[in-house]
């Protein structure tokens, strides 16, 4: 499903160079929920961005859903993301000009789904969020927790194979964080999607079965992965 081979990534020029990832080799199975953890600056975001094709590696190979991410061009990367990937960032994930419902519909429309499909799927997800009544609200009218939940629904609307979530609960209070995580788990179970979740919440790390520990751009250890 996801395989990285000697992947390195650096930022800045020769003087200011920072090695964000150092020769990372990883194999992540499909259909699982995998936690990515490590201290701040350890390279979690960088790793997610590389897997999602938002950035390209300095060296090494990345293969996701049968596509060689490091070899294809910008346009194919866009198409790959459109079909196979859902992103959830730390905060402000939604398009402010669209209502909650239209945000959820967007990936479906981008993938050429019919009007009926878009309608069914968005209503189904809104119901799962318990937000049917808030469907016509714009993001500014939603709380941070609601926004994050809509963002998660949107990230899986088009049934991608991969959901990349980068500290989706970091900006939320504990109650909201808990409900967002609950939703994430529920969706993971219902949708049969591979979830890669970056976090440094120790409680969350505690409870997870499969995890990858990063430090200073290197994989320290893994748990629950063969």
């Amino acid at each position: 499903m996801i395989s990285l081979e000697n992947v390195s990534k650096s930022y800045g020029n020769r003087q200011t160079e920072v090695m964000a990832l150092k020769s990372v080799t990883l194999d992540l199975p499909a259909g699982e929920m995998i936690l990515l953890t490590g201290p701040s600056g350890s390279g979690k975001t960088t790793l997610l961005n590389l897997i999602g094709g938002l950035e390209s590696p300095a060296s090494g190979h990345i293969r996701v859903c049968g596509i060689d991410i490091d070899k294809v061009g910008e346009k194919q990367l866009s198409r790959f993301r459109r079909r196979n990937v859902g992103f959830v960032f730390q905060s402000y994930n939604l398009l402010n000009d669209l209502t909650a419902r239209d945000n959820i519909r967007l990936p479906l429309v981008l993938n050429g789904a019919s009007e009926a499909e878009c309608g069914n799927r968005s209503e189904e997800l809104l119901e799962r969020l318990g937000m049917t009544r808030r469907a016509d609200a714009y993001p500014v009218e939603l709380s941070g927790g609601e926004q994050q939940r809509v963002a998660i629904a949107r990230s899986v609307a088009h049934r991608p194979q991969l959901l990349l979530a980068d500290e989706p609960t970091a900006n939320l209070d504990s109650a909201n964080a808990a409900s967002v995580l609950e939703l994430l788990r529920e969706i993971y179970r219902a949708e049969n999607v591979t979830v890669l979740l970056a976090t440094h919440d120790p409680l969350l790390v505690e409870s997870a079965k499969r995890k990858v520990f990063l430090k200073d751009g290197s994989v320290m250890k893994t748990e629950g992965l063969v």
Binding site: G52, L54, E74, K75, S78, R79, F80, R81, R82, R83, V85, F87, F89, Y92, N93, L94, L95, N96, D97, L106, P107, L110
Partner: peptide, 14 residues
């Protein structure tokens, strides 16, 4: 920029 970044992350081409 944020809005356009979100769109591109969703697979919207340049």
């Amino acid at each position: 920029h944020r809005e356009f970044g979100i769109l591109k992350a969703m697979g919207v081409t340049p």
